[in-house]
Write a protein that binds this DNA or RNA. Structure first.
Lengths: 128, 128
DNA sequence: CAGAATCCTTAGTGATACTG
DNA sequence: CAGTATCACTAAGGATTCTG
């Protein structure tokens, strides 16, 4: 009997595997960008929209998302090659959620940064 | 002029600083657990609810969340010491969003795992 | 263009021991 | 109890080079 009605995240909880993909810096951005565009995007386009991501990290994020069925990858065997990424239905659902987080982050960034500055100031005081 | 109406995540975008905290494995769980309980939780309680987290990682996650004003930390100067963690108003908002993600992960874990298995099987085929 | 492969640096994680 | 401190280790990330 647990008197606590709250949530417990067990090690083998299947949701944790899913969360590990979503709780990733670049995955969040990829979902965000693809959600914001209804047309499929090419690799370099995607990369242009996510400043600071390296080709390696973006490739990896896209592979993980593809693997989990959130993103589909279409290769057009032309020269030069053309690869397009789009959200699957599953990905669109997830995108809605992660976009909500991104939006919240944007509108509350000031509050968070203020809290952070105050915290850091307090720390500096304590050290002095 | 950009013909693309989509989102771009600039390097200096303030939301990215916020996202870096939320896009963290343990932070998500902490917010989830604290959202699920309306009473404040102690360190070890929190840890019991998040299987597999080390004391170091949990401490770090809690510090980051406290720093960003999402979690408040109350020290009761008793012996033995008693430290309680609770969500701030800001944290409660964020918790709603991250809990939505956790819930989605839980209900869709099967679909994701199926996609993953299919992907891995295809890979194995290609290698053969 | 869209990557794969390589090397290298650093950040994250775990285990252990110690403290107010 | 709720941490801090330290060391060892692994995994993630960056820079660069190469290829169909």
């Amino acid at each position: 009997m647990d008197t606590n009605s709250g949530i417990t995240y067990a090690k083998d909880c299947p949701s944790r595997t899913v969360l590990s993909v979503l709780a990733n810096k670049w995955s969040l951005y990829v979902l965000g960008v693809l959600s914001g565009n209804d047309r499929p995007l090419r690799f370099t386009e995607l990369r242009r929209h996510i400043e600071g991501v390296t080709q390696k990290s973006l490739t990896q994020a896209l592979r993980n998302l593809e693997r989990d069925g959130l993103v589909s990858r279409t290769i057009h065997p032309t020269i030069p090659p053309r690869v397009e990424y789009r959200l699957t239905d599953l990905g669109r659902e997830a995108g809605t959620l992660t976009t909500a987080i991104a939006d919240w982050s944007k509108t509350n960034a000031a509050r968070v940064h203020a809290a952070r500055a105050a915290y850091d100031a307090r720390l500096a005081d304590d050290r002095a």
